[in-house]
């Protein structure tokens, strides 16, 4: 792992509290938050503007849900690493998200440590 190359992180969640929480809690040296979006549609706009390397993605959101958003983001940038952060705890949803191109799954509620572990594991692929 070459810790020198910084990676851009975009946070997608309809909850402001969760967005702020992820930004505050993530302690991966390589990651720099470049923006946060409250729904899928906003996320795509922001993605095209900031070209992030890593995305945390909520699933239950207004406007455009997370699964569809994952699919769109992967179509724009296949190398993007997406960590799904959702309360939807059923396996079928996880499979769907991974099949659409997500790289990890973190179930809400989560501790700071769980978040950092999940991000660290995600970055093993980077």
């Amino acid at each position: 792992m070459n810790a020198v190359v910084p990676l851009k992180l975009m946070i997608v969640d309809d909850s402001n509290i969760i967005r702020r929480r992820i930004e505050r809690s993530q302690q991966i040296d390589r990651l720099r938050v470049v923006g946060a979006a409250a729904n899928g549609r906003e996320a795509i706009e922001l993605f095209e503007r900031t070209n992030p390397d890593v995305v945390t993605m909520d699933l239950t959101m207004p406007e455009m849900d997370g699964i569809e958003c994952v699919e769109r983001l992967v179509a724009i940038k296949p190398a993007v690493l997406i960590l799904v952060v959702s309360a939807l705890a059923d396996k079928a949803t996880a499979v769907e998200a991974i099949a659409k191109g997500a790289n990890g799954f973190l179930c809400k509620p989560f501790t700071d440590r769980q978040l950092n572990d999940a991000l660290a594991e995600l970055l093993q692929d980077a």
């Binding site: 059923d90 396996k91 079928a92 996880a94 769907e96 991974i98 099949a99 790289n103």
Partner: peptide, 27 residues
């Protein structure tokens, strides 16, 4: 559909083993 999706995910080597195990919907 879910089962087939899952098998596809298993074949895509970019998905790590422990992630795949944790999302097995066919338990």
């Amino acid at each position: 559909q879910t089962a087939q999706r899952f098998v596809e995910v298993l074949w895509s080597e970019r998905t790590r083993e422990n992630l795949v195990k944790s999302i097995n919907p066919l338990q």
